[in-house]
Simulated scan of single mutants.
Amino acid sequence: MKWGYVFIAAIFEVCWVMGLKYASTLGEWSATIVCIIISFTLLLKATNVLPVGSLYAVFTGLGTAGTVILGMILGEPVHVGKLLLIMMLLCGVLGLKLTTGDTKGETES
């Protein structure tokens, strides 16, 4: 569940980033603020048990990829190059997750 917090926080990051672009009413702005709070609360909770460097790289990578993908779904231009770069980003995120230990400050000898 440790990495689950990061994944859920990234989903809420995508929500608040899109909220910053599309929010126009008080309710939409309120939802955006709630998404920011949830996203960073979960991220902070995950920093208690995971190495901060890898955690933040995975969080921002997932958030970036999710935001670009959702943007394309909502009508932004889709280019093969953009899709390839997202795949590379996600491969890097997956690689970081797979090579990172589960305890804070863990080092390999």
Rank of each mutant, 00 (worst) to 15 (best):
residue 107 T to H: 13
residue 47 T to K: 05
residue 57 A to S: 02
residue 71 G to L: 02
residue 35 C to A: 15
residue 76 E to A: 11
residue 13 E to I: 08
residue 8 I to Y: 12
residue 23 A to R: 00
residue 26 L to W: 15
residue 31 A to D: 03
residue 54 S to F: 05
residue 92 G to K: 07
residue 43 L to E: 08
residue 96 L to P: 04
residue 10 A to I: 07
residue 27 G to V: 12
residue 43 L to P: 03
residue 95 G to W: 09
residue 107 T to Q: 15
residue 34 V to N: 09
residue 56 Y to W: 05
residue 56 Y to R: 02
residue 39 S to T: 03
residue 45 K to E: 11
residue 64 T to G: 02
residue 105 G to A: 03
residue 26 L to P: 12
residue 62 L to D: 07
residue 31 A to E: 06
residue 38 I to A: 04
residue 81 G to W: 11
residue 105 G to V: 00
residue 2 K to R: 12
residue 60 T to A: 12
residue 9 A to F: 10
residue 58 V to P: 05
residue 27 G to K: 14
residue 60 T to P: 09
residue 25 T to M: 14
residue 20 L to W: 06
residue 84 L to R: 08
residue 91 C to A: 15
residue 84 L to E: 06
residue 84 L to G: 07
residue 84 L to H: 03
residue 108 E to P: 11
residue 103 T to P: 01
residue 40 F to W: 00
residue 41 T to P: 10
residue 51 P to K: 08
residue 6 V to D: 00
residue 28 E to N: 11
residue 49 V to F: 06
residue 2 K to L: 15
residue 73 I to F: 10
residue 105 G to T: 04
residue 38 I to V: 13
residue 69 I to A: 00
residue 82 K to E: 05
residue 90 L to I: 05
residue 55 L to T: 01
residue 19 G to D: 12
residue 58 V to Y: 00
residue 53 G to I: 02
residue 87 M to P: 09
residue 93 V to E: 04
residue 104 K to D: 07
residue 47 T to L: 04
residue 103 T to S: 15
residue 85 L to D: 00
residue 105 G to I: 06
residue 44 L to R: 07
residue 37 I to C: 05
residue 99 T to D: 12
residue 3 W to Q: 10
residue 37 I to R: 00
residue 74 L to G: 03
residue 85 L to N: 07
residue 86 I to Q: 01
residue 89 L to T: 01
residue 2 K to V: 13
residue 94 L to C: 13
residue 56 Y to D: 00
residue 108 E to T: 06
residue 49 V to M: 13
residue 37 I to E: 06
residue 31 A to H: 08
residue 2 K to A: 14
residue 93 V to D: 04
residue 95 G to D: 05
residue 51 P to V: 00
residue 53 G to S: 06
residue 17 V to I: 13
residue 74 L to F: 13
residue 78 V to H: 02
residue 61 G to A: 06
residue 58 V to M: 06
residue 66 G to N: 07
residue 94 L to S: 13
residue 39 S to V: 11
residue 27 G to F: 14
residue 42 L to Q: 01
residue 56 Y to T: 07
residue 33 I to W: 10
residue 81 G to S: 10
residue 75 G to P: 01
residue 34 V to I: 15
residue 57 A to G: 01
residue 41 T to F: 15
residue 103 T to L: 14
residue 15 C to A: 15
residue 48 N to S: 08
residue 105 G to F: 07
residue 30 S to P: 08
residue 31 A to P: 10
residue 3 W to S: 05
residue 11 I to Y: 02
residue 98 L to Y: 14
residue 73 I to Q: 03
residue 46 A to F: 04
residue 75 G to S: 03
residue 70 L to F: 10
residue 105 G to E: 13
residue 74 L to D: 09
residue 13 E to R: 04
residue 72 M to I: 03
residue 29 W to V: 12
residue 35 C to D: 07
residue 78 V to E: 08
residue 26 L to Q: 13
residue 106 E to T: 06
residue 69 I to G: 02
residue 67 T to G: 05
residue 75 G to H: 09
residue 59 F to K: 04
residue 64 T to L: 09
residue 11 I to M: 05
residue 49 V to K: 08
residue 75 G to W: 09
residue 2 K to C: 15
residue 100 T to D: 01
residue 60 T to F: 15
residue 42 L to C: 10
residue 99 T to W: 09
residue 23 A to E: 04
residue 23 A to M: 11
residue 16 W to G: 02
residue 26 L to D: 13
